[in-house]
Each structure stands twice: as C-alpha cells, then as structure tokens.
Amino acid sequence: MSVMEDRLSPNQDDFYNALIAAHEGLGEADSHALNARLILLMANRIGDLGVLQDIITTARSYSDA
C-alpha cells in the first residue's frame, strides 16, 4: 500500500460532483459498467504500468477479503 500524493486538490469537489452526476439515472448494473469504463480510460491516460500496478495494489489492500 502506498500513500498517494494529493494531485486532485483544489478541484476535488468539482471532480466528485461530476463523477456523481455521471451516474445519475443509471441502474446498478449500468453504474458498474460506467465505473469499469472510467477505470479503463483513466488507466490509459495514466499509461505508466508501474504506477498502475501500485494503484491496483493500494486499492486492493483496503479490501477486507
């Protein structure tokens, strides 16, 4: 698990609001699909495999199982 540098501030509220708004009107399955597309697009934008691997490990470390 890594502690990630904060790169979102000061735009975190604008981002969060846009993210939630993108889900408006979608059912659960469609929301999951949207999240999957978002992750794939963001991964492509990040590009660096080392960084992506670090993010995956960090995100997974918070899972209970």
Binding site: V3, M4, E5, D6, R7, L8, S9, Q12, Y16
Partner: peptide, 14 residues
C-alpha cells in the same frame, strides 16, 4: 475508507 491514509481522499470528504 481511503481517507484514513490518503490525503487526497480526506479532501473529498465534505
């Protein structure tokens, strides 16, 4: 959940 360790996530909490 992330906010405990991740500074960026703390800022998302509103």
């Amino acid at each position: 959940r992330l906010a405990k360790d991740q500074p960026f996530a703390r800022k998302i909490l509103n």
